[in-house]
Structure formats: structure tokens, C-alpha cells
Design a protein around this nucleic acid. Sequence first.
DNA 1: AATGAATGAGGCTTCATTCAT
DNA 2: AATGAATGAAGCCTCATTCAT
Lengths: 195, 195, 195, 195
Amino acid sequence: MSLRQDILDVSKELLVREGFSKMSMRRIARNTGVSATSIYLYFKNKDDLLLTLIEESIEKLKQALISEVKVHKEPVRQLEDLARAYIRYALNHPQEYEIIYMVRPEEMPRYPKEKFREVRSVYELISEVIQEAARSEQLSVAEPLISAYTLWAQLHGVVTVILSRRLDIRIPRDRFIDQAIEHIIQGFIIQKTPA
Amino acid sequence: MSLRQDILDVSKELLVREGFSKMSMRRIARNTGVSATSIYLYFKNKDDLLLTLIEESIEKLKQALISEVKVHKEPVRQLEDLARAYIRYALNHPQEYEIIYMVRPEEMPRYPKEKFREVRSVYELISEVIQEAARSEQLSVAEPLISAYTLWAQLHGVVTVILSRRLDIRIPRDRFIDQAIEHIIQGFIIQKTPA
Amino acid sequence: MSLRQDILDVSKELLVREGFSKMSMRRIARNTGVSATSIYLYFKNKDDLLLTLIEESIEKLKQALISEVKVHKEPVRQLEDLARAYIRYALNHPQEYEIIYMVRPEEMPRYPKEKFREVRSVYELISEVIQEAARSEQLSVAEPLISAYTLWAQLHGVVTVILSRRLDIRIPRDRFIDQAIEHIIQGFIIQKTPA
Amino acid sequence: MSLRQDILDVSKELLVREGFSKMSMRRIARNTGVSATSIYLYFKNKDDLLLTLIEESIEKLKQALISEVKVHKEPVRQLEDLARAYIRYALNHPQEYEIIYMVRPEEMPRYPKEKFREVRSVYELISEVIQEAARSEQLSVAEPLISAYTLWAQLHGVVTVILSRRLDIRIPRDRFIDQAIEHIIQGFIIQKTPA
DNA sequence: AATGAATGAGGCTTCATTCAT
DNA sequence: AATGAATGAAGCCTCATTCAT
């Protein structure tokens, strides 16, 4: 495989496993089996490397969601699929997910803030699915964009709790996920008050 | 006593405002107007300082929740109050909150992981409130502990999105919070299916 | 002697003997028998160190000139004394002199340009002596400030040629200096054309 | 041939505009639009490149002086012409001049010192003009070689002051040059003491 | 209770140069 | 004639920590 990709992989692992402060150029070089200087042949500097990491991860998340959505026609089912796909992807690709959401902007001052907003396309995807469901009058959605963000915030919370290992060990992960999704989806469904 | 607190305050601010990598002993010392050596009179080392920071923050969060809960008797109302109190506290004390939940354990290898679990008392508090409401048969709660965690995960997601400044600028923060709480609480209320 | 002074001395020597590019913090540390980190206890950074070096050198040159001037009352003699004092000081303290005039501003971008102008007090000293002599109508001096600068330029040229070892080896240094001073001074004396 | 010259030109500009420390092979390559490796096809190493730069500059200075001298027959006038030509060339070709005289030999340890002495032919040119004038008994020149060096030293001083931007901003450059040349030339003319 | 002095390790980055192609 | 890949050395600087006072 290309050295460039090796560097990205090693960086990703270091970043997620040991934290931002341990992702140093020297360490990356050591773990890649290459001199620190060589990294600069492929990336302008550390920020550039981090930027690439984030961009790649966002792209992968986006693709994963796109490919899993719209299999089922039924809107509510579709929404649930989206939620499950989101959580499943995050848990199966913790590195990519953490890179997107756990590197705090404060840690990288030179990072162009607009780039961070590229993640928006993810929310827009969510927003579309919600809007579609709203049209079928099965969801109580006043403002799709806001609802998209609240849905995403809840999913992100669930993922975060698991990834940061803050879930009580007495709770089986799958049960937690199922229950969470149930609560979340139910929160969006229109309450059919008895006539 | 006073200097010790000064050091904690300065550390807290540095950590949250500039990120983990900028919270250095030298910086803390400089901002506190004291020599770097002096910090070691109050804290064994940097990890110890961070530990203290986290413990204090957890304690404050706990106290804040306790004081706001159980004002209303009505269970659903109580739950909503709890949710609001949680979010309000987090947003009003971003430093304390971020220290608890945004400093990743990976950043501190020598940090005793058990300490992180002290936060559990927070979930137990949530759990109690949920159980109480469940008893009144207004909530669809099969397993209170799991539900407590899902509720917390959702709240945490909402807070995280705001604190990490990932909320779309077109969305007013308050609207987002209101809508989120509405969705979350509704997700817990028993659906009264028409007879 | 103090470490601070040691560092300054070593830096001075490195700068003059091996050139600007060889005056590195590591080298200074090595030659001072101290860790590189220690330099930062006494100087904020490399520029600060260089700045101190230059300031000290300017001050010494100024003091040397002041102390040697105004011994003789006769204006022309006084001017010659000043010229000799200038050259003598420069040759006896090549390090200090070179530091003032041979570090090109381009080499230190962060250096505050105003500081470079502190050398002006040296020219002002020269200017004063020239003006005094002009009052006695023995010198052909239309504009004292300009003449002060031309005088200085000439002296500086002489010094430069010697210090940069560009003088032909067949020429004895003292003869060169004597002749140069003779030419220079004579260039300022009013030509008494025969009536 | 063309690329070789491009490299030399770029180097020259970098050296003079940004200083010795910024004249790196990589920078030269970047500014020339060529790979760093390519420079080694034309120059053995950095020192070789610098050497070539200096040799070229010396040759140009020599040619410029030769072409401007001996237009006027009158010896004193000829001397003044030479002085003006020297200063004019230096100011019109600051890059070449600075390379000859402002790159200190100390910056290049591996540089063969004899090469630096090639500049001597310049002084010999000056020496010839002075000797010619001396023969006409209009100049007070005991030893032509020494006088040639003192003349050159003074001219060099004037040029240096201007090029290193050390001339007081209140002084117009042309006035400074005129006055300097006047003083310098007058210093060489035989004083006709009244009988 | 507090500090100044000191340091080894490591941070990011640029350097001149070589080698294979 | 030209280059991409690679590197060891070194550049400046900040880090957490210790020790003597």
C-alpha cells in the first residue's frame, strides 16, 4: 500500500487510541517505520494531515449513510433504518467517527472552520429523510432542519456514550441501542390521541 | 487554599478555552501569576491536577441536579424539569461540563479509570426520577437503568452539539433545545393507542 | 560569572567567528556547557538574545567614543582623535563592532527596526564634534549632519576592510590606517587657497 | 544553460532580499520552478553555487569599472569619475555588490579563501588610476597601493551605509553621495600651502 | 509556602544531500 | 536532463518535572 495511506492509517489509530496530544509527527513516523521528514513529502504539515484525516472520514460516513437509506419505502421504517445505520457505522468505524466528532476545534487553531461545516451534508441527508416522512403525516415535524439536528444530536449522544466507554458495564450494549432507538423514534411519531 | 483554587480555576479555563494541549503547567503557572514549581505544592503532578478538576466538576453537576429536581410532583413534569436542568446546567457551566465529558480518558494514561465512573451517581439520580415516574404508569419504561442511560445519552448529545459549536447557525439555540426536549420526553411517554 | 553573561559571550563569539547562520541555540548551549533549554531562562527567544547582544555593543561603542573625545581642545585635532578612537575601538573590540554593523536586518525579521536606529546616537556624537570644529572655521562643513554621516561612512569603510580581512596582505595595517585617517581628515579641512 | 542562469538569478535575489539564512536549496528550487535535485546537475553543492555567484559578480563589477574609466584625460577628474562609477554601479546592482562584499567568508567554511582575493583586480584597477594621477603631481600619493586601498575603503564605506539602509532618513541619498565624494576626492588632492 | 535554576525529552519543521529511476 | 522518494541532522522552542534554597 502507499506510504501516504500508511501514514493516514497510523495517524488515525494514534489519534483515536491515544488521543490528540499523542498524535505527534515523530510518533506517526516511528509507527509507520519511516523518518519524520518523509511525512512532509505527502502532507504540508500536521494540520494538513489532520485535515485530510477528517475529510476522508466525513466522506466515508456520508457514503455509508447514503448506501443504507431508502431501502424501505415506509417512512417511519426508513427513519429507523437511518438511525440504526448511523449508530452501526459509528460503532463499526470508531476511528473515522471519532475523528469527525472528537477532535475539538480548539485543538487545531489553524484549521479552516469552513471545512468543519462539510459535515453538514450528513445532517442534510437526515433532514431529507425526515422531510419525506413528514410529508406522509406520520411524524410530528414542525421544522425539518431543526428536527434533523435534534435527531442527530440524540443519535450522536448514544454513540458518544458507547464510544467513550461511559456506558454502565451492567448494561448490554445491544439492549441499550435498541431501547435508545425505540425512545428516539417514538419521540418523533405523531401521537394518535384517541378520538 | 486560595492559591489552590486559583490554579484550578485557571486550569479549567485553559482546558476548555484552548484545549487540552494548551493546558500546560507553565501556562497555568503564568496565568495564575505564580511559579510553575508552586503548583506542585498543591498537586502531585499534572494528572493529579486534572483528576481534581474532574472530581470537582462532577460534584458540582450532581449538586446542581439534586437541587433542581423534585420541585414538581407530577412525574412527567418532573422528568422534563430534570432534562431542562441538565441542559441548563451544562450550558451555564460549560467548563465543568466539558471537563467531565469532553476530556477523553485516552488523553491521560495514568489516570485511574475508576474515578471516571464516579459520574455514575449522576445517572443514578436520573434513574431514580425515571423509576418514580414509571411507578405512576405514565412512562413506558421497561428497565429503568437502561432508560436512564438512554435519556442521559440523548441529553448529552444535545448538550454536546451545542458546546462543540456544531449546531447550524441558522438554528436558534433555544428553539433547538425546546424541540429536542419535546422529542426526548415524548419518546418516554406511554403511547395511548386508541382502543 | 553569571550564566547569562556566559551565554552572551559565547553567542558573541559564535556570531563573529562563525557567522550568523552558525549562531544556533544548540551551539550556544553546547559551547556554554549548558542545556539549550537553559538559555530560555535568560532570554525569551533567539531574537531577544540577539537584540541584547546588539544593544550592549552599541552602548559600549558609545561609551568608548565619549571617553576618548574632548581631550584635546584644538578642533581638527579633536576630529582626528575621534577618528582614531573609532577605528581603534572597532579593531580592539571586533566582536562588538561586527555585531552592530554586520548583522544584516534581513537576517532577523522579527527585530524591531527602531532598535537599529539607536546607533544614531553614535553619529550624533560625531556630528557634535564636527559642528564644534566647524564653528572654528577650520572645516569645510556645509551641513554637519551630512558631514557626520560621510565621515562615519568613511571610517566604517576603513574598519570594514580590515575586519573582513580584505586588506591586501602586502599592506601593513598601521600604515593603512594612518594613511586613511590622513586622507579622511584632509578631506574635511578647508583648503586655504593662496591669496 | 538557461536553467543554470535561472538558478543563479533566483539565488542572487534570495540571498540579497532575504538574507543568507533564507537562501536554501529548497527555496531556490521552489522559486526556480524546478526540483531541488536539479540544482545538483549544475552545481556540485551549495558552496559551489555560492562560489559561482561571487565569481560572476566580481567579474561584472570589474567590467563595469573598466568601461567607465579613462574617458576623461584630466587625472583628478578621472579619479572622481572612477569614484562615481564605483558607487553608481554598486547602487544600481546591489545584488552583485552585496554578494561580493556582504557575504562574510565565515558563513562558508568550505569556501576556498583564495577565491575571495580575486576581487583584488578591482583594487588594482583603482591603483592604476591613482598612480597615473600621481604622476601628474596633482595628488598627494606616497604609496599608490595603500592609497588605492584607502580610496576603495572609503567608497566601500559610503556604499555600505546606503545599501544596509543605515543612512539617516533625513538625509537625501544624492546629497550624501555628492558630499562624500567631495570629501573623499579632496582628501587626495595636494594641498597647495600658500608660499 | 514559594521559588529560581536546571534539564532531558520531545514538539513541529526545514535543511542539504543522496539514490534510483 | 530531470525528478520523486527518502533521510539524518539540526533548527527553534515548550514540556513536565526535580532539586536546592
